[in-house]
């Protein structure tokens, strides 16, 4: 399978859907759908995420790769498939601001990696806290673009620590990339540098929670 990862990644980066589809189908001849996702799609998206952090791949490529992989995986692992990872109960949200691309990318990459999670869209603090409690979430992913929104994560974390002890909160977005201390300042459990980081974080938390 390893020999497929690099060509699959390159086909995603160059938006060569035909080639990416062909390589994915090739993986499916050897593995079950969830194994193909974990052995081919997840590593390729991880590599693309690292390349974006390093500056050698652009956000447009990350977005299109995630969207395409989401479609590929959806075909073989529909939301109702028992192999989909519905636990821990997770959601993603854009807090306060109106910039949705980061959330959209993480959501696609999570689903392309076999996870099912709630998409809360955009919410303010009060609405978000209430929804997290109503849905009995165990993992919350918060995406922001603007600094004031990032600072509002502090209130979300403080209130959820009291009302939902044990919840894990990860943050991502530009303010956290430009200020390495900010995720700790707002009280998050972790930050993601790229969409692929969200997958590894949730996987790790999933194992810790079992």
């Amino acid at each position: 399978m390893n020999e497929l990862i690099t060509p699959f990644r390159l086909s995603l980066e160059t938006l060569d859907r035909v080639q990416a589809d062909k390589l994915f189908q090739q993986a499916l001849t050897q593995y079950s759908p969830i194994q193909a996702v974990e052995k081919l799609v997840v590593p390729a998206l991880e590599q693309i995420g690292v390349a974006w952090e390093e500056g050698s791949v652009a956000l447009s490529q990350v977005y299109m790769s995630g969207r395409f992989c989401e479609e590929l995986v959806e075909r073989v692992l529909p939301p109702s498939d028992p192999d989909r990872k519905h636990q821990p109960r997770s959601a993603i949200v854009v807090l306060s601001d109106y910039h949705m691309l980061g959330k959209r990318i993480v959501y696609s990459v999570m689903r392309a990696s076999g996870f099912e999670l709630f998409d809360y869209g955009r919410m303010d603090v009060d609405e978000l806290v209430q929804r997290v409690l109503d849905d009995r979430l165990r993992v919350l992913l918060i995406s922001v673009l603007m600094l004031p929104s990032a600072l509002k994560v502090k209130e979300v974390c403080a209130r959820l620590r009291v009302a939902a002890p044990g919840i894990r909160i990860a943050v991502g977005g530009a303010p956290f990339l430009f200020d390495a201390q900010l995720w700790q300042e707002v009280g998050a459990d972790a930050m993601g540098h790229s969409a692929a980081d969200a997958v590894s974080l949730v996987q790790r938390w999933m194992e810790e929670m079992q």
Binding site: S60, M64, M100, L101
Partner: peptide, 11 residues
């Protein structure tokens, strides 16, 4: 139009 829809438009 939103960044996601715009990327799709470009491509």
């Amino acid at each position: 139009m939103g960044f996601d829809h715009y990327i799709e438009l470009i491509y």
